[in-house]
Simulated scan of single mutants.
Amino acid sequence: MTAAPWQSGGTVAFADLDDTLFQTLRKLPGTDPATLTPMTVNTLGQPHSHATPAQTALLELLEGGHVTLIPVTGRDAQAMRRVTLPFRSWQVMDHGLTILTPDGQPDAEWAAQVTAHLHPLQDALHAGTDAITAPAARLGARLTRHAAHGLPFMTVLKHPDADPQVLADLQDRWDAAHGPDSPLRVIANANNVSLLPRHLGKAAAVRYLLDTHLRGAALTLGLGDSVSDLDFMNECDFAVTPRRGQLMRTLRGLTLPQR
């Protein structure tokens, strides 16, 4: 399976990867492994994440429709190299802070915009990280800092047992310190709670591509599984989400009146 290169007037699909186009076996209990298609490898080169028959059919549908498939992922360059699904167009990585051209080089204009935005946020990012370090250690959570273009941009918390109560407690602490007026925001899905810039991210990267390199698209699709994907999906004409994803679970929980 390959993705069609960009052609003006064509269709573009911006797709989150993990838990949208593939997932680990842990999230596929009871599934016959023989029906799955490996899509990523681990650091030892062994199959790690897999696509279900439905996900494989979706990818084949996009390919058959000559759709330009652009990943929009939180993965960094190292993690992207472990994805075996080939991409031939633009790539959005680092939660939107890095955009690669079809030649595999960082988009210089976007990188300049990102670094200009990140520099003033460094004190806030450091303070937010420092404030959570001791509580995270006390609760057994692992803290990881991530950088893009040589600058820290995100702190991620994980728990070795994916303890929801621990993660919820840490998220509450961050949420209390980073309200709507904060330059930082908190996102959470699966076993991750992350602190990152409010006005940089997947949506800003998709908007940049549509306003510059991908102008003239006849149709745009946004594929994602989590609530944090909703912003970039909203930049597209149509949104597609897996039925067991965080976003669909959230929608099913709404009790809005029918009018």
Rank of each mutant, 00 (worst) to 15 (best):
F87G: 02
M93N: 05
L100W: 05
E63S: 09
F87K: 03
P120C: 09
V114F: 10
D94V: 01
G74C: 06
L118T: 03
L69D: 03
P106L: 14
L100K: 03
L100T: 04
H95F: 13
T56M: 15
V83W: 00
R88C: 10
A116S: 11
Q91G: 02
V72H: 01
T101I: 12
P86T: 07
A77S: 06
L69W: 04
P102T: 08
G104W: 07
T84P: 00
T73S: 09
A54T: 15
P71I: 10
A77R: 00
A116C: 11
T52Y: 11
L69C: 13
M80K: 02
A79N: 01
F87V: 04
R82D: 00
G104D: 06
A77V: 00
H48K: 06
R88N: 12
V67I: 14
A79H: 01
H48V: 07
Q78Y: 08
A79K: 00
H48F: 11
L69M: 15
T84G: 03
R81D: 01
P106E: 12
H119M: 14
P53A: 12
H95M: 15
D103S: 12
H48M: 07
H117D: 04
D107S: 14
P47A: 12
H48P: 03
L58K: 11
I99H: 02
P53W: 11
L69A: 10
D107A: 15
T84Y: 02
R88K: 13
V114M: 10
P106F: 11
V83S: 02
D94P: 01
H48L: 11
Q55F: 08
P120H: 08
S89C: 13
E63K: 05
T52I: 14
T115Q: 11
G96E: 06
Q78F: 10
P71G: 09
G104K: 05
A51V: 07
L62P: 01
E109C: 13
M80V: 01
R81K: 04
P53D: 09
M93H: 04
P106D: 13
L100F: 08
E63W: 02
Q91S: 08
P53M: 13
A116P: 02
Q105A: 15
A57H: 13
G65K: 05
L97T: 03
P106S: 11
L58M: 15
P86S: 05
V72W: 02
Q78N: 10
M80P: 00
G74T: 03
A112S: 15
H50K: 09
A51I: 08
S89K: 06
Q55W: 05
D76H: 05
T68W: 05
A112F: 14
H50R: 10
A108V: 10
A111S: 10
L97G: 06
S49G: 11
H66S: 10
Q105R: 15
L85P: 00
T98H: 05
M93E: 04
T115W: 07
R75I: 01
G65Y: 02
Q78R: 13
A51Y: 07
E63C: 05
V114T: 06
E60Y: 05
A108S: 12
A112K: 09
V72A: 07
P71D: 09
D94W: 00
M80N: 01
T98Q: 06
G104H: 07
Q113A: 14
Q113V: 13
R81A: 05
W110Y: 12
T115N: 11
A77I: 00
T101M: 13
E63N: 10
T115S: 15
Q78H: 14
T98I: 09
L85I: 04
I70R: 03
P53L: 15
S89L: 08
L100Y: 06
A54P: 14
T73M: 07
